[in-house]
Design a protein around this nucleic acid. Structure first.
Length: 431
RNA sequence: GGAGAGGUGGCAGAGUGGUCGAAUGCGCCUGACUUGAAAUCAGGUGAACCGCAAGGUUCCGUGGGUUCAAAUCCCACCCUCUCCGCCA
């Protein structure tokens, strides 16, 4: 959520930064107008209340010293009733304005940092670096991961549609073991890097989704359990960030680093024709998520190190990838800066997103009221939140099945992963 | 699902109609003592909003109601805990 005070005090600067996401998409003028009305009402209301409080005290004093029937008391009571009547008109108006402002504010995205490249869409994203060109396979006949996976007997899509729908998968035998090994491998690495593992609820309430920014604008993207105001988590970012919602954290406890494995559930509304095959775009997938809660002055450098922690997994697995910095037009709703890690998928001949590392500044902290207090200092401040995948497990599996595919149709297991899987190669069931 | 208890400041926990934004303890800050720390003693210390300021307003789970006046009384709802039932 944007800071209303900042909008009020620097409207042109806020508008300019919103325009970087897309000219004409966001107009702060309606908010400013509502805010002016609300503050005018607030002034009037609080003056009335002040007089009302005064009357209350006076009546109390006089009743102690005199009779209840004294005319002075009657007059005061009458004035009290008059004020009450006036307030009963003002208060709902002001409440309504406040609610309108809140609703509007929740639909506004975060302001991009000045360092975020300006651009209209993903074509203007900026490639930061490439890693592992030497690991790009030379074999020109690499099968897409879903084909090799089915040949190896470790993936089954058809039967999964029977159980659920399209865009679901069942992993079998070595496939299921491979996924489990990847989860264990990624978590172990991130725990070693200093992240405290958590295993949060997978069903989460609306308030949590609102705090991280999925609601109200992106309700279509998540699965909902209607009877209970609970949703299937679309990413561990939501439950993990919300662990600290409505809390004031002592500054000396910062930074807080968490990693979490969860399944993620997404409706993928609006992507009907895209990536219909394979592990790339499923309604349910597994992910290791990294979440940081940090002091505002450190969030940029924490963002860089978060990215490195995600990259470290790809490097350990020797999977070729590149780092892309999202331009303002492609930046996620709550992010002020974001790096995507894209892994090389030989069958497609291109890089595909496998991790997204975002800095949210105080955007989520405001929505979720996550604050910190510095000992001895007055008041509280909003913390900064960051998160990134470390990594998406299904896509990692896809990348391994392709990049480690051998001409004979077997798939080598990356060295670093072998101890977790207990085997060096995936072979056809018959051989 | 049934029965009961409870939701108060960073935390614990008093408070049952007025001077209560709220005792007390812990924590934290400042000072004294100390080479330093600990212990002890004294003082201070909630959050949010409006206002240039003085100052004002709001907040005791949430929403309504009664009253000149509500943490306190009434109604509804939400949540947590305990016990019973069912169940992985």
């Amino acid at each position: 959520m944007l800071d209303l005070k900042q909008i009020r005090e620097n409207p042109q600067s806020v508008q300019e930064r919103l325009n970087r996401r897309g000219v004409g998409e966001y107009d702060i003028e309606p908010i400013l107008e509502l805010d002016r009305c609300q503050r005018e009402l607030e002034t009037r209301r609080s003056h009335l209340q002040a007089r009302g409080n005064e009357i209350g005290k006076l009546v109390g004093q006089k009743m102690k010293s005199g009779s209840v029937e004294e005319p002075e008391i009657i007059t005061l009571k009458d004035e009290g009733n008059l004020i009450k009547a006036q307030l009963s008109e003002l208060e709902p108006q002001e409440k309504d304005l406040k609610a309108q402002i809140e609703v509007l504010l929740l639909t506004f995205p975060n302001l991009p940092l000045d360092s975020t490249p300006i651009g209209e869409n993903e074509e203007q994203n900026v490639e930061v670096c490439r890693w592992g060109d030497e690991y790009i396979p030379e074999n020109p006949n690499i099968l897409p991961h879903w084909e090799i996976g089915e040949k190896l007997g470790i993936l089954n899509f058809e039967r999964s549609t029977k159980v659920a729908q399209s865009r679901f998968v069942t992993l079998i035998g070595a496939g299921a073991a491979l996924e489990r090994a990847l989860i264990q491998f990624m978590l172990s690495r991130q725990i070693q890097a200093g992240y405290l593992e958590v295993s949060p609820p997978f069903l989460i309430n609306s308030q949590s989704l609102t705090a991280t920014g999925q609601l109200p604008k992106f309700a279509e993207e998540s699965f909902k359990c209607d009877r209970d105001d609970l949703w299937l988590t679309p990413t561990a970012e939501v439950p993990v960030t919300n662990l600290y919602r409505d809390e004031i954290i002592p500054a000396e406890q910062l930074p807080i680093y968490h990693c979490a494995y969860t399944p993620c559930f997404r409706r993928e509304a609006g992507s009907y024709g895209r990536d219909t095959r394979g592990l790339i775009r499923l309604h349910q997938f597994n992910k290791i998520e990294l979440v940081k809660f940090v002091h505002p002055t450190t969030s940029s450098q924490e963002h860089e190190s978060l990215r490195q922690d995600a990259e470290a997994i790809l490097q350990a697995l020797k999977l070729p990838y590149r780092v892309v910095e999202l331009c303002t037009g492609d930046l996620g709703f709550g992010a002020c800066k974001c790096y995507d890690l894209e892994v090389w998928l030989p069958s497609a001949g291109k890089y595909r997103e496998i991790s997204s590392c975002s800095n949210f500044g105080d955007f989520q902290a405001r929505r979720g009221s996550i604050r910190f207090k510095e000992a001895g200092k007055k008041g509280t401040q909003f913390i900064h939140t960051l998160n990134g995948s470390g990594l998406a497990v299904g896509r990692t599996m896809a990348a391994i099945l392709e990049n480690y595919q051998q001409p004979d149709g077997t798939v080598r297991i990356p060295d670093a992963l072998q101890p977790y899987l207990g085997r060096e190669v995936l072979v056809h069931p018959g051989s």
